[in-house]
């Protein structure tokens, strides 16, 4: 329950309200983690929030978190000057375990900031690209200005043969890319549904539609993985806040397969 101390090395602005924070341990070795896991980041004097790790699991130093400025703690984090000490607990929870998709296609469906927890999984695929067949990234953002990791996506497409489809909800003047919902891309994306592992992260409504679309394409529900968000506090299943019926999402999740989640997603306020 006691955080390790990390120092802010530098911050990379991603969008107007989102920043990637690079942290270096002040008290020991780098933090080993699995793609999809999260930590509890503590801004001293302000508080603690759960943030997914967005860096490369094969290169955990510096430790990357992509943080959206939406509250007091996240504001303190995104505005932290280099050298600022930050508390880190974790890593916590289940990972994407993308290696389960070895030998088949990988479909990644991301919405908004949901691309951040998926970035480590994509980097893992990229590092062992020949282990996988077709790799498709379908990414939906609110507007072109909200698109995360544009440089990464260009690299993944050009250097690693990943099919990247980006779509936005609002297409302002000058935007020549796709406009529309990311989940509708699922129906026409090029992958073999029966031999695919699908990884989905975004707002819960978007994940439900994405999972429905993937299931309709024929991807088995056991091969569709969603990263769930609830009120993670302790990270170790003790405090109770992140319960989704019988699940403690901070230890049983956040990544869970759709066959397990489907009955729970349909009940309101569960």
């Amino acid at each position: 329950m006691v955080p390790r101390l990390f120092g802010v090395v530098r911050t990379y602005p991603d969008t107007l309200d989102t920043v990637t924070l690079a942290l270096e341990p002040l008290d020991g070795p780098p933090l080993a983690f699995r793609a999809g896991q999260f930590t509890m980041l503590h801004a001293f004097g302000v508080g603690e929030v759960p943030i997914s790790i967005s860096g490369d699991p094969t290169r955990p130093d510096p430790l990357l978190h992509t943080v959206r400025d939406v509250g007091a703690v996240t504001h303190a984090l995104v505005t932290a000057a280099p050298g600022t000490a930050v508390g880190v607990r974790g890593p916590f929870g289940s990972g994407w375990e993308v290696a389960d998709g070895t030998g088949g296609d990988v479909v990644v469906v991301a919405g908004g900031i949901g691309l951040a927890p998926l970035r480590p999984a994509i980097l893992e695929v990229v590092s062992r690209r020949s282990d996988y067949g077709r790799v498709v990234l379908l990414y939906g953002a609110r507007s072109p200005a909200d698109i995360l990791f544009a440089d990464d996506m260009a690299t993944w497409a050009q250097r690693h043969g990943i099919v990247v489809e980006v779509t936005v909800d609002y297409g302002p003047p000058g935007w020549s890319g796709r406009v529309g919902l990311v989940t509708t891309l699922v129906a026409r994306a090029g992958f073999d549904p029966l031999h695919s592992l699908a990884l989905v992260c975004g707002p819960e409504v978007m994940m439900r539609y994405a999972a429905t679309a993937l299931s309709a394409r024929g991807v088995p529900d056991t091969r569709i993985r969603l990263s769930m968000e609830r009120n993670m506090r302790c990270g170790i299943g003790l405090c109770g806040h992140c319960q989704l019926r019988e699940l403690f999402l901070c230890v049983d999740g956040p990544v869970l397969s759709y066959d397990r989640l489907a009955p729970l997603l349909d009940v309101r306020e569960l």
Binding site: G45, G47, E48, C239, G240
Partner: peptide, 25 residues
């Protein structure tokens, strides 16, 4: 057994305490 943590800091921000308190669903 549900609990919450309360972070209490003094006015100067020099001391930061973490307390575990009972919480309720």
């Amino acid at each position: 057994f549900c609990t919450s943590v309360e972070d209490v800091s003094d006015l100067s921000g020099d001391i930061d305490e973490r307390h575990r308190v009972w919480d309720s669903c």
